[in-house]
Design a protein around this nucleic acid. Sequence first.
DNA 1: CTGAAAGCGCTTACAG
DNA 2: CTGAAAGCGCTTACAG
Lengths: 330, 330
Amino acid sequence: MAKPAATIRDVARVAGLSVASISRVLNGHNHVHPDTRKKVLDAMNALGYVPNAAARSLSTAKSHAIGVVLPDMHGEFFSELIRGMDKAASERGYLLLLSTMHADSVLAGQAMGAMRGRVDGLIVMAPQLAAADLARTLPASLPAVLVNSPDDAGHHNLRIDNRGGVMLMVRHLLANGHRNIVHLSGLFGNLDAMERAQAFRDALATLAPELPVRVLEGDFSDESGERLVQKLLAEGMEFDAIFAANDMMALGALQALRTVGVRVPAQVAVAGFDDVPLARYLGLSTMRVDIAGIGERAVARLVDELEGRTTTPAVERLTPALIARATTAS
Amino acid sequence: MAKPAATIRDVARVAGLSVASISRVLNGHNHVHPDTRKKVLDAMNALGYVPNAAARSLSTAKSHAIGVVLPDMHGEFFSELIRGMDKAASERGYLLLLSTMHADSVLAGQAMGAMRGRVDGLIVMAPQLAAADLARTLPASLPAVLVNSPDDAGHHNLRIDNRGGVMLMVRHLLANGHRNIVHLSGLFGNLDAMERAQAFRDALATLAPELPVRVLEGDFSDESGERLVQKLLAEGMEFDAIFAANDMMALGALQALRTVGVRVPAQVAVAGFDDVPLARYLGLSTMRVDIAGIGERAVARLVDELEGRTTTPAVERLTPALIARATTAS
DNA sequence: CTGAAAGCGCTTACAG
DNA sequence: CTGAAAGCGCTTACAG
């Protein structure tokens, strides 16, 4: 188990050459005689040599690793994001160093500090940090790309195009004849929640200024969706569509409607946002967010920066796709 | 952005001491004068010094990082596993280096090779590899703990206690009066699928040898669950309970039953395995597998080994918990 | 095309 | 308690 690994010196000895030559073939340099190359390759094979990454990164000041700092997350969003990052990273010869960070910005700073010297750059998702805290926390010595984080002029930031997504869904609901759409939002402190709510107001103002605009604050949980709809029903408010800021709230809304026998979508249409696996199963109309795509873009952008193909940092938005299913009966 | 990071030599200069002293306070060695310690700490603060991990691991031959090699996975299982590993790792001062590996065992070998020199040990999940391939692929120079992998005498292997879990569910179904239980299994090539199917046979043989034993092979997908139940119904076979080898198949089964108006659980009970989020939402009885717990155990075990608290490698099984919900009407 | 040597930023006996 | 020096395993100008 603890068999000591061969070093470049062992390879040199076996091949009857200097370590410099070993290093040259290792790094694919030209100006190595074919015979030499062959001797080196043979020796490496014989010894099962694999270069020590720590030594390599110490002398090149490159680790070919990317630090990924994420909040404590559950479920599909997390795995899809990682999947996308892993794909893009392995295509480019990078490895992912993972660290989840808790709400505390001091701990977040530690998490990033622990990565110094082990990674060439950082991908950070910090939707829970204020812009100022985030800026203070990011190590100045490391290039970084943000994901779903507060805007920060110095760094590229990959976001969901909430405005575009909400516009598509509102247009879809209007096209299906709905005139009384209620938006159930996430907590107003949340970046995406606020953008979606504002986009809802703007979309109605643009597309159908004569219609009422109603926004109720929830918290992205199915319970809050259920509770808000129960309240709407209890107050006898008129509505013929619910557009929730995420799928979980939409599912809560569905539950509340079905419990009292309201027919969906005949009497009330229901739509969500995210396209969680549950949504497909329950026939919920929603906006599909390409989370893996965000992860891929983040890595691609960071590696571009690391390898000198820098473009100016900006807020880059990925637009979600409309998924029309039974609850809005496209 | 590319501000050069301070090195230990900078700290030594600012503190007016040798690098050895800096290193000593860095590593919490005793025999450092309080005044010296203070000077060092002040200098480190002034410079925002963070030790370079590559240099450190080169000279100590320890990286305090764990390589995690997983198959291409989707969804909750993946995120829960990582969550558990991350928790256990950060508690112990380790970082996680992630790499997903594709079915190909050659690529798997490369993925592990790329981690040499960057990690102190490996956690490998390779349910798709044959035992022999896995043994050949694992680098001999690195301690490793397996998760949900074929057994390999040399390494610790963390598995789900399928036998115990199936026994609990069969007992539950029998206790609720079901006498005609059909098991829908995963593909027979899959480790967990085979264990669950065999455990089902054994459980019935032990608890109610007079009852019929029926096992139908599916593939863990909801489609296969739906299809199998449609076939059962078409053939007019008698049954009063479906025990699927995972939740997705159970959901497919539910769908098929509801479509033709079979009442659940009055006429047919349905149970799954895994406790995916969907299960709770749809009131599906199932076995809850503590996936995060498996991740935590894997890291704990590996770190024990890395730090010399070795115990003999074994197959360690985590027992799932019975979650009785509406579809079996406990 | 190849080798000897310095250097990357740490840690750790070894002296003192 | 502290410092000078060697060494970890590589890479890379610099000579030749």
